[in-house]
Amino acid sequence: MSSVVKNVLKPIPKQKLLNLEKLQCQIFRTTFNPTKQRTGAKILRQPLKGQTVTNYYGPADFPSAARIVRLWKNEEYEVVNEDEEYRLDRVEDLKRRGKGAPKKKREASSGNKKK
């Protein structure tokens, strides 16, 4: 009985294991990599993300509100950009209360230069 146990626990030769792994790779169409080096195959197998990202942001040639206003400029009706109108109203309100951006300098001061 002890001889049977010894035969079962006998180590399998490395070459047989490599041949078995090579055969598995052929059957399941995977890459045979006996040295176990990193190949980047995991990343290359993933689906490409470019189309997903492009679909998320939409078409690049989608017209902006300003472009629509320029294209449809007509004397009969006026296209209103609500976001821009809100921004302008807010800036005007801040200026009225004295909280707006400071005025830009018109001319360079002559006394502050270092010699």
Score class of each variant (00 low, 15 high):
1 M>P: 06
2 S>V: 04
3 S>W: 02
3 S>D: 13
3 S>N: 12
4 V>T: 02
4 V>W: 01
5 V>S: 14
6 K>D: 11
8 V>G: 00
9 L>T: 10
9 L>N: 11
10 K>L: 04
11 P>W: 07
11 P>G: 05
12 I>E: 06
15 Q>C: 04
17 L>T: 03
17 L>F: 03
17 L>W: 06
18 L>M: 14
18 L>I: 08
19 N>K: 10
19 N>W: 02
19 N>F: 03
21 E>N: 11
21 E>C: 07
22 K>V: 03
22 K>F: 10
23 L>P: 01
24 Q>Y: 07
24 Q>N: 10
25 C>K: 02
28 F>I: 05
28 F>A: 04
29 R>G: 10
29 R>T: 09
29 R>K: 15
31 T>P: 02
31 T>L: 13
32 F>Y: 15
33 N>I: 06
33 N>Q: 08
34 P>W: 00
34 P>M: 01
34 P>V: 01
35 T>F: 04
36 K>Y: 06
36 K>G: 02
37 Q>C: 06
37 Q>L: 08
38 R>K: 13
41 A>N: 12
41 A>I: 14
41 A>R: 11
43 I>Q: 10
44 L>N: 10
45 R>Y: 04
47 P>Q: 15
47 P>D: 13
48 L>C: 15
48 L>E: 14
49 K>N: 11
49 K>D: 12
49 K>C: 11
50 G>W: 06
52 T>K: 13
53 V>T: 14
53 V>W: 05
54 T>R: 15
55 N>L: 09
58 G>P: 02
60 A>S: 11
61 D>P: 00
61 D>Y: 08
61 D>E: 14
61 D>Q: 07
63 P>M: 02
65 A>I: 12
65 A>N: 09
66 A>V: 06
66 A>D: 12
66 A>F: 05
66 A>C: 01
66 A>G: 11
67 R>Y: 05
68 I>M: 09
69 V>Q: 09
69 V>S: 04
71 L>H: 05
71 L>Y: 06
72 W>T: 07
73 K>A: 14
73 K>T: 14
73 K>W: 03
74 N>R: 11
74 N>W: 03
77 Y>P: 00
77 Y>Q: 07
78 E>H: 03
80 V>M: 06
81 N>A: 07
81 N>G: 00
82 E>T: 14
83 D>I: 00
83 D>C: 00
84 E>F: 01
85 E>F: 01
86 Y>D: 08
86 Y>E: 04
86 Y>K: 04
90 R>P: 00
90 R>V: 09
90 R>S: 13
91 V>Y: 10
92 E>T: 15
92 E>K: 12
93 D>F: 11
93 D>L: 05
95 K>E: 14
98 G>L: 10
98 G>W: 05
98 G>Q: 06
100 G>S: 13
101 A>I: 15
102 P>S: 07
104 K>C: 04
105 K>L: 11
105 K>P: 00
105 K>G: 00
106 R>W: 04
107 E>A: 11
108 A>S: 09
108 A>M: 07
112 N>T: 15
113 K>H: 15
113 K>M: 12
114 K>F: 13
114 K>C: 06
114 K>R: 15
115 K>Y: 06
115 K>V: 08
